[in-house]
Each structure stands twice: as C-alpha cells, then as structure tokens.
Amino acid sequence: MLDIVIEARKAAIAPGMEVKRILPFRMRRMVGPFIFMDHAGPVSIQPQSVAKMDVLPHPHIGLSTVSYLFNGEVTHRDSLGVQQVIRPGEVNWMTAGKGIAHSERFEDPSVLVGGFEMIQTWVALPEKDEEANPTFDNYKPEQLPIYTDTGVWMRLIAGDAYGLNNNVKTHSPLLYLHAVLQPGATFGLPKEHSERAVYVVKGSIEVSGRTYTAGQMLVFTKGVDPTLIAKEASTLMLLGGEPVGDRFIWWNFVSSRKERIEQAKADWTAGRIVLPPNDNHEFVPLPEDKSKAAGSPPPQALS
C-alpha cells in the first residue's frame, strides 16, 4: 500500500529560478538516504535574463548532491577547483563530507532558450562518512546502464535495481533511476531495497485504480509490490534505499549531530569553508536563522 503521497511545493532558490520541492516533507523527511529533492523547470528564458538564474557559491556538509538534467546545461564550480559543464543524461555526484562550496551558473544562453529541466537530490551520508574529504565525480551517459522492455525505457543513475548496477560511487545501499513509460505500459518497483518512492516528472500513472499526476511523489510501504500503469507517456524518477538514521537539516547543511550544524554556520560566516577558486567574487551569505521562531529552516539552494 501507499505510505504517503507528497505534493511538490513551490520554492525559490534564486531570483530567476523557481523549483518544485518534494523532499524534505514535514510528514516524510527522508526516503532511504535521500533527504532532499528539487525539480527545476521546465523553463525557457530569454538570453538577457540568464544571469538571474545563477546559483552563487554556497556551502554544504554531511551529504552528497546529485545533479541530473533532462534538458539544457549548467556549469558547476567547487572548492576543489573542479569546473564541469553538466549536460543531459550525465550524473554529477558531489560529496560534501566535512565541507565544500560550489556554484551553478548558466553560461550558454542558447541552451536555456530551448528549455532547461533538472532534478537535484541530496543523499545523506552514513555517520562514518560525514566528515570525509569532499569529492566530485562526473559520469557520462554511456557509463550508466539502460534497460528496455515493451513500452519501458529506464536508466540506472546510481545504486542497484532490477539486477542493474554501475560504478557511480555511493556511500550506502540505494536506488536511483530515470524511467520513461509509453501509454499503457506496466511497471513494477524494484524489490532490492526497503524504502522506495516514485516521483512523477510528467504524465500520469495509475496505481490500485487511482491516478497520480506530475508533481506527486508516491512513497510505498516496505514489502509492497505495486504495479504502475502509464495513463499517457510519462517520465518517472525512482529512488530509495536503506535508511541511514535521523538527520538534522538546516539550509544546505545535513548532519546526524545538531551541534555540527551550528559549527557549519560559524564556519561559513568566518570563511573557513573555501570558495571555488575560479568563482570566488561573490557568495550566498548565511540566511537569518528564523527556524526557532518559524518552525522551519530557511530555503535551501538548488544543490
């Protein structure tokens, strides 16, 4: 049976960039190790407005960010000196560990005129890896296995599912897939992991006689084996895995220890988290902490 249906909410991460936020949700903070999920786009924008979409340098701790594009491109720069143009079908996996800063800039106006769409997730690290040295890896589409069946196409982004696996470096057992279904296609969830969810990017699916549409995430109870039926051409993201334990999340910081979040705030304010060497002239300041009064953290950056 369904554990919960999460409706995406609107969130602004930059003056020109509004996203659909799926995780965290007040009644379901995580699915497996996934603690955050944003769906940006689809959006088309005129060249003169491209700079408004830039996400300035900002910090992370205690997590891995995963960037996956459907359309367009964005340039990543980080504290390690990495500069990587992210393109559709690639996986960009940045592990923040003890601390990293990065930016995402839209530097080719032509690709945004044609549309931009991206999914961003954060994967919480196991406690033993929360203070690891930061790393960044880019994986090309040809490194990611694809499976096809009648009316079904899917790519394994990370982890293992349906007997597929790849070399994307993860820190705990998980699944993450991009699936495209043709009208009438049937699809079952992988059984390898205890926590599983389906996010409808576009189109609609039927589960147990009910229809679910774009912007909804379906989280399923452990042991349930649902059948998904595509009501129309549909794009889905499947994610989940094994829980890593409770986590605190504030702005762009994730940790198993509340005091570590406080330390990260102080580190960013004091400049102890290094800016990208090739993008260090501006940055996102630490937001005002209204969490105690308002009961919720300030808005997170895209990644």
Results as ranks from 00 to 15, higher is better:
V152A: 06
M154L: 15
D137V: 14
Y147M: 12
L181N: 01
N165L: 09
A161Q: 04
G151T: 04
G151H: 06
T135P: 10
V168G: 01
F136D: 01
L181M: 08
A179D: 02
D137P: 04
L177P: 00
L177M: 13
D137G: 07
D160E: 14
P141N: 00
P190H: 00
T186G: 04
P141I: 04
F136S: 06
L177E: 02
T170I: 15
A185S: 06
V180D: 04
Y176I: 08
M154N: 00
P173C: 10
A132E: 05
Q143A: 15
G163I: 12
K191F: 10
L181Y: 05
P134A: 08
T135C: 10
K140T: 15
V152S: 03
Q182G: 08
D149G: 14
I157V: 14
I157W: 04
T135G: 07
L177F: 05
M154E: 02
F187T: 00
V180C: 07
T186L: 06
G163T: 08
L177Q: 02
E131C: 08
L164C: 02
L156F: 08
P190T: 05
Q143L: 13
L181W: 06
V180T: 08
V168K: 02
A132L: 09
T170M: 10
S172L: 09
G163D: 07
T186D: 02
D137Q: 14
D160M: 12
P141W: 05
Y147L: 14
